[in-house]
Design a protein around this nucleic acid. Structure first.
Length: 628
DNA sequence: ACGATTCGCGCG
DNA sequence: AAAGCGCGCGAATCGT
């Protein structure tokens, strides 16, 4: 069953019920915004798939009411996939001009730092053109239920139509099941993103403050330099013999370095490291600490940490490869320096898991390179590559693999590539083909059907001009450069995007297992971990395990603030190939098992019987800094 | 004075 | 050792 959620009037939603083929099976109903969570909770007992324009906008409100849902279909994320996918190229949907469904719903009030509540929406103000049915559904609904139901169907029609179009487009696709899995995974990712933003990453401000004080000196007002930075600045000025030097200005620092007889082209740290001069050490320390202060100092904490939680906004589908982006607080770049502050609540643990060498393993999978897959049977793929005889050291194996996936041409990496190609011809041919396709301006596609964008107008014009021999030699050279650049992008895309496919499946499967764990833990009997297996997962396209509504209901008793997680272990952080689960201590070991089972499930979903393994590094810790 | 771009560095 | 992919962010710098 599908339940389509559409905006209706200034302060409400229409819920429409569709059967599995998309036919309307019963009259819809209208609910006010502040009743949405309650209505969803009741319907969720039937395990529907929720269909809505934008998960981030709608699901956050449901979470505010303390309610979670098991699965959804995000119309905006799906249309983005279907527009670009090579599996649906040429379809009406792919060729249609951009419309309202392509646009995210933005909340009227820009989200205030750390404000994890009150994210109300006004569809009247914000809905893009094209939604209107010309009918006013607000107002005298009391007149009779017939009237209300009629309006519910009317306002819901554009949403229902778009959903049916997307279903039909998938049905007609080259490989519908592959796309269905991708869409289910992408939508599950959107649910997870909203839940992680809602939950936040447990953050100890006192630990963070102590750490800053130790490294920088006591806290000072914004704009002022803490003691340690002041001290280092003075030393630098002295060593360079320029008392007025502004150590924060790269241009001034560079000038001063050259005046002191040092041959630097830039002030980048790695370049400075090569220089031999007494100023280098204090200068490097200054840059490091200055970075810490500006990126993750006290004002960062003030802006982004509230009530012991760091709550960045995750942006699923924010990168064309399917990786997520984030907004706010630089969540993609939490320095190792400050991870000490990420600390489990009392009685809870952080279960930190990292998919070891994910991208090269995924390359083995997408290219069907059995030799490389075999090299990855152990815990360390790079050690396996050394054992295969392709290169001498682990360091070489790593730099060569990265070079293969990124398109290195020079340096040690470039030199090692022929040896890698000889040892693993299937894998290297695969990325090489992807690069050649990109150089021709063609589209490449991930394991589950996410395709790369085509290069822009400028790119094509430059190529055309160069082909016709027009323009200067310089312009032709530039065109070749652009072609190679795009080739490196598509070369990497097939790996990065397939790894993102895997990570989404991993998390979606993990989420179901975590919910099952929470339910089992609250039951009277020890039910153990629910292992639903791959077959069940495939038929369900990511999501049939009950979310444990009973557990959730128990978790927020009457009179308490609604809390959608209660004692259920839940994801609190995700970074490409790494997750953090916040779990009650008693469940931590079971969560670690769930993480590994989910890895196996995801690998099987993507690669079937191909003998690929994605081992995890799992740590059960109190602080993120203690993770392996 | 202010928006756009670049630099430099953090993460995978 | 410092290239080859993908990001976000703050400060400095550039352009108008």
């Amino acid at each position: 069953m599908y339940v389509v959620v559409s905006p209706a009037g200034p302060d409400g939603y229409a819920l429409s019920f569709l059967d599995d083929s998309g036919e309307e099976e019963q009259q819809g109903e209208l609910v006010a915004t502040d009743e949405l969570g309650e209505a969803v909770e009741a319907i969720e007992l039937e395990s529907p798939r929720w269909v809505w324009h934008d998960t981030a906008a709608t699901y956050s409100q449901i979470l505010e009411a303390g309610v979670r849902v098991e699965r959804c279909h995000d119309l905006r994320l799906t249309i983005a996939l279907l527009r670009l996918s090579s599996l649906t190229s040429g379809t009406g949907l792919a060729m249609s001009p951009p419309g309202p469904w392509d646009t995210a719903i933005t909340s009227p009030k820009p989200s205030v730092a750390g404000n994890r509540s009150g994210n109300e929406l006004s569809f009247d103000d914000d809905k893009p053109e094209g939604f209107g049915t010309g009918r006013d559904s607000s107002g005298e609904d009391d007149a009779g239920s017939d009237n209300a139901e009629g309006n519910a169907s009317g306002v819901a029609q554009p949403t229902i139509d778009e959903f049916r179009l997307q279903l039909e487009t998938v049905r007609a696709a080259t490989e519908p099941n592959r796309l269905r899995l991708l869409i289910a995974a992408e939508s599950a990712g959107a649910l997870i993103a909203a839940e992680m933003t809602h939950a936040g990453l447990p953050w100890r401000e006192d630990v963070h403050d102590a750490l800053l004080t130790e490294l920088l000196g006591p806290r000072v007002a914004p704009g002022l330099r803490p003691a340690r930075l002041e001290q280092l600045a003075t030393i630098i000025q002295h060593e360079l013999g320029s008392p007025g030097l502004n150590t924060d200005s790269p241009a001034e620092v560079l000038k001063a370095l050259r005046a002191a007889g040092l041959s630097a082209e830039t002030t980048r740290s790695w370049e400075l490291q090569a220089l031999d001069h007494p100023v280098i050490e204090p200068l490097l320390e200054y840059k490091k600490l200055s970075r810490l202060l500006s990126a993750n100092g006290w004002s960062w904490m003030e802006s982004w940490v509230t009530d012991g939680r760091f709550s960045p906004e995750y942006v699923p589908g924010g990168v064309v490869s399917g990786r997520w982006a984030t907004r706010g607080g630089g969540a993609l770049q939490l320095p190792k320096q400050v991870r000490r502050a990420v600390t489990a609540d009392e009685g809870w643990k952080l279960v930190v898991a990292d998919a070891a060498q994910l991208e090269p393993r995924i390359l083995a999978g997408v290219s069907g390179d059995l030799i490389m897959a075999r090299a990855g049977q152990g815990a360390d793929l790079y050690a396996g590559i050394v054992a295969s005889g392709a290169v001498e050291s682990r360091a070489q194996a790593k730099v060569a693999m990265l070079g293969a996936m990124y398109g290195a041409t020079t340096g040690e990496s470039g030199r090692l590539l022929p040896r890698l190609a000889a040892a693993f011809p299937a894998a290297l041919t695969f990325v090489e083909d992807a690069a050649r396709a990109g150089e021709r301006g063609e589209v490449v596609t991930s394991r589950l059907g996410r395709s790369s964008p085509r290069p822009g107008e400028d790119w094509w014009e430059a190529q055309a001009a160069a082909r016709e021999g027009a323009g200067s030699e310089r312009e032709r050279q530039r065109a070749r450069q652009q072609a190679r650049d795009w080739g490196r992008f598509t070369r990497n895309f097939v790996v990065q995007a397939s790894a993102a496919d895997w990570a989404l499946c991993w998390m979606a499967d993990l989420r179901r297992r975590l919910c099952a764990l929470g339910t089992a833990a609250l039951g009277t009997a020890a039910l153990g971990t629910a292992d639903l297996g791959t077959a069940a997962l495939e038929t369900a396209a990511l999501g049939t395990a009950a979310l444990g509504t009973a557990a959730l209901a128990t978790a927020h008793g009457p009179g308490r603030a609604a809390e959608p997680f209660g004692t259920v272990p839940h994801l609190v952080f995700f970074l490409h190939d790494e997750v953090i689960v916040h779990a009650p201590e008693s469940l931590a070991e079971a969560v670690a098992d769930a993480l590994r089972s989910a890895s196996a499930s995801a690998t099987k979903l993507l690669f079937g019987e191909f003998p690929l393994t994605v081992p995890l590094d799992v740590s059960i810790v109190d602080s993120y800094a203690d993770a392996a």
